[in-house]
Each structure stands twice: as C-alpha cells, then as structure tokens.
Amino acid sequence: MLSAAVRPALIEVLDMLRAARAVLFPPCCRFVPTCSEYAREALEKLPLHEAFLKTAWRLLRCHPFHPGGHDPLAR
C-alpha cells in the first residue's frame, strides 16, 4: 500500500523538523506529551488521515488560551 512507503518518509521529515525546532526556538509546548511526540506516535500507530487530523487538532489547541496539560494520544 502507498501509506507503507509514505509513513517512514513522513516520520523522517517530522524528526528533522523536531531537530530544527529544538535549535531555533525554546520549548513551547503546553502539553505532555509535546505536540511533536504526539504527532510521531500518531504517525506510527494510526491510519495516515487520522494521524493528520489528530495532529492538526492538537496543534490548533496548543496556544495560550488553552490550559494545556496531560493529553496523551487517545486509543
């Protein structure tokens, strides 16, 4: 299937982005696990479209008006 080929590539890209962010910006995430950890876990475990949607929703919530806190990937 296509996703079998795409998935590792996406994870690779995500890891690069995480490394870049770590250098360029101070820690910023209001959640545990952080958005990028969350995204990586979602990419590993969920169907691609679901992983995208969940990650997008998580990122949209990660702003100063949301209390943040413990928010693991729902199974």
Binding site: F25, C28, C29, R30, P64
Partner: peptide, 24 residues
Amino acid sequence: LNQEMMELYRKHGANPLGGCLPIL
C-alpha cells in the same frame, strides 16, 4: 514529573509555555 507539573499549571491556569501554534 513533567506530567505532574503540567497538571499543577492547569489547576492554577498558569502554563508558562506559549504553545506551538503561535510559533507555527
């Protein structure tokens, strides 16, 4: 520890981290 700290922030409505969205 991280988890507990986050819980504490949430309880007091004080999360010192700005969030990923503003940076994005």
